[in-house]
Design a protein around this nucleic acid. Structure first.
Lengths: 190, 190
DNA sequence: GTCTATAGGACGATAGAC
DNA sequence: GTCTATCGTCCTATAGAC
């Protein structure tokens, strides 16, 4: 792997673990096994390297999540597959956690990939909900975009509950709770 | 207000705005209008001051949220009141945001008030859901603790969506989505 | 392209005067 | 109780050798 690749990968890991404010160039260089010169040769500075790292993380998340949402099954089953997807719950969401970073939110450039990814995810799920309504899986009164927002928020908030308690249990409980509310008519008492 | 009070209040503000890692003693002292000596006289250091600040924020959150949940109305209405409660959405949750702070999560002492507050909130809401089930407001198949986790997660995740997009709209959408799923039978199509 | 050296400032804490 | 002075380290970036 090239030095610039190692820098990006190290930055991705550290952004996930410690956020933008908590990640120093020094820590990145140590993890990547590179010197100062390499970093400032390939990137303009910390924000520029972070942007490359965030963009890649956002891309990967879209690719992986897209696969799950494009899977087989009914609308409910595909949303369930997304919610129950295997996750390293206690590590949190590598994209969502950046919204709690003051320097990321303050920068339109750094925030953009985060915004685009979560927006894409909501629209994708909204489409599936609308599909489910057409098929009679979901009540016609439901709003696709609202349900999608609730689904994504349950996941993002689930990470918060899990990290607060130091256990994935609360994340799983929230997912089960939402699914029990979302379950197609006829399956509700199942 | 005493110096030690000003230090705690300044720390609370900065923890909310910038998190623990992003908040320096220097910034606290500037905001409080105090010198180094005052801080180290009243507190052992940054972690000690942060602990006092976090504890107070947690207490206030419980008091304010308790009032909303103890309000009048049906189980659904009280949960709705909590979800629709007036919030500075783009500022995020002063308690929940701390779960994304690596140094807070790494410290059992700093994490404890966060954990206790979110746990208390979930239990409180779970009780209301169980009440609602007894009254026939909610389907008996629903699990109080699971619904409570979904409710709290929707709020915490709503902050994430809102901060990502720079607008409270996604938070509100998630809340409406969850409420539409939770609406008592007979009110669903309303 | 990568390294080390160096810079000026901030970080978190301590010492000691008042 | 509060202040300033000082400390050693880390932060982000630049310079310049190789």
């Amino acid at each position: 792997m090239s030095t610039s690749e190692r820098l990006i990968e190290s930055t991705r890991e550290l952004l996930w673990e410690r956020g933008y404010v908590g990640t120093s160039p020094k820590a990145i260089l140590e993890r990547a096994g590179a010197g100062q010169g390499s970093m400032y040769h390939h990137f303009k500075g910390k924000p520029d390297l972070a942007l490359a790292a965030i963009r890649r993380t956002a891309e990967e998340m879209r690719a992986a999540t897209g696969k799950v949402l494009d899977g087989p099954g009914s609308a409910y089953e595909r949303i369930e597959a997304y919610l129950r997807r295997e996750r390293d719950v206690l590590r949190g969401c590598p994209v969502g956690r950046l919204t709690m970073d003051p320097d990321v939110v303050a920068s339109d450039e750094l925030r953009a990939p985060v915004d685009e990814t979560l927006d894409w995810l909501r629209e994708r799920i909204a489409g599936i909900v609308e599909e489910g309504k057409e098929r009679g899986e979901f009540a016609p009164s439901l709003d696709g975009e609202e349900i999608a927002a609730a689904v994504v928020a349950t996941v993002q908030g689930g990470y918060v509950l899990a990290r607060a308690s130091g256990s994935p249990a609360a994340f799983d409980a929230g997912v089960r709770g939402l699914l029990s509310l979302l379950a197609p008519r006829g399956r509700r008492a199942a």
